[in-house]
């Protein structure tokens, strides 16, 4: 088991506010790592540092072997990212979005064509390829977003609340996509508020007020906190939080 994400006392401050406080953890290759925490616990801030979108205040981290301070552009070649806010181009069609991001990631025309066909076929979106993304229902947008994030075969994909606001059936389909990617060896780093989704992860961490309070497999955590369900584990930890929204 080789770690693809390692952090050491990774911290981000905004003025006096410590958004993430001394995070130290590692994620192994091919793992599905659940990154849990209440609203405002610092999940998105941590994820943005790992993706090279935000500069850490102190501490270290390496992603796919590259340093988050100096080698962000190398990191970006090796990761995919799906932000909390839908961020494909709404005024481009499904096909145009896929081709655009394929091109930006430097895939050649043949690769783009093959990826497009496979992706559209997998999502069953043959009839929607020419539609503007703005006209798609949320569930499809999210599945499309994920597929675009893994288009360039990244080593790691970061998903920030990918299933927020999505219906249960689509959530299941979404997790099927995640499992398929993980089976190909892609490491999944995912945040979620759904505890059933937490159960799908190999390991999970729970953040409270900027710190990681617990990190283990779902089974071990339930034993550790003498709980029947992840819901209860989360509740025991998160109610200690003093900040939130």
């Amino acid at each position: 088991m080789t770690p693809v994400i390692t952090t050491n006392r990774l911290t981000k401050r905004f003025g006096d506010f410590v958004a993430t406080d001394s995070l130290t953890f590692s994620v192994n290759q091919g793992e599905i790592f659940g990154f849990l925490g209440a609203n405002g616990a610092g999940k998105t801030t941590a994820m943005r540092m790992l993706c090279g979108l935000s500069l850490p205040s102190s501490g270290d981290a390496t992603i796919a072997g590259f340093d988050v301070y100096k080698q962000t552009e190398d990191i970006k070649k090796n990761i995919g990212y799906m932000s909390q806010k839908f961020s494909l181009y709404e005024d481009l069609t499904v096909l145009e979005n896929i081709r655009f991001f394929g091109g930006i990631y430097g895939l050649n025309n043949r690769q783009i064509r093959e990826k497009c066909d496979a992706l559209i076929n997998r999502l069953g979106m043959e009839d929607e390829t020419g539609k503007l993304v703005a006209s798609l229902p949320l569930g499809w947008k999210q599945k499309l977003s994920f597929s675009v994030a893994v288009l360039h075969d990244p080593k790691i994909v970061f998903l920030d609340e990918p299933t927020g606001g999505v219906d249960p059936v689509t959530r299941r389909q979404f997790w099927d996509l995640i499992y398929e990617a993980a089976a190909r060896g892609v490491t999944i780093f995912v945040t979620t508020h759904y505890m059933d989704e937490a159960e799908y992860c190999n390991r999970i961490s729970i953040m409270v007020d900027g710190k990681i309070e617990a990190l283990d497999t779902p089974g071990n955590l339930k034993r550790q906190f003498r709980s029947e369900s992840m819901d209860d584990v989360f509740y025991q930890l998160a109610r200690k939080a003093r900040r939130g929204d």
Binding site: E73, S83, I104, Y105
Partner: peptide, 13 residues
């Protein structure tokens, strides 16, 4: 504003 720049910034462009 729309947020699409995030998706660009996370690429090696």
């Amino acid at each position: 504003e729309v947020g699409t720049i995030e998706q660009i910034n996370v690429t090696p462009i």
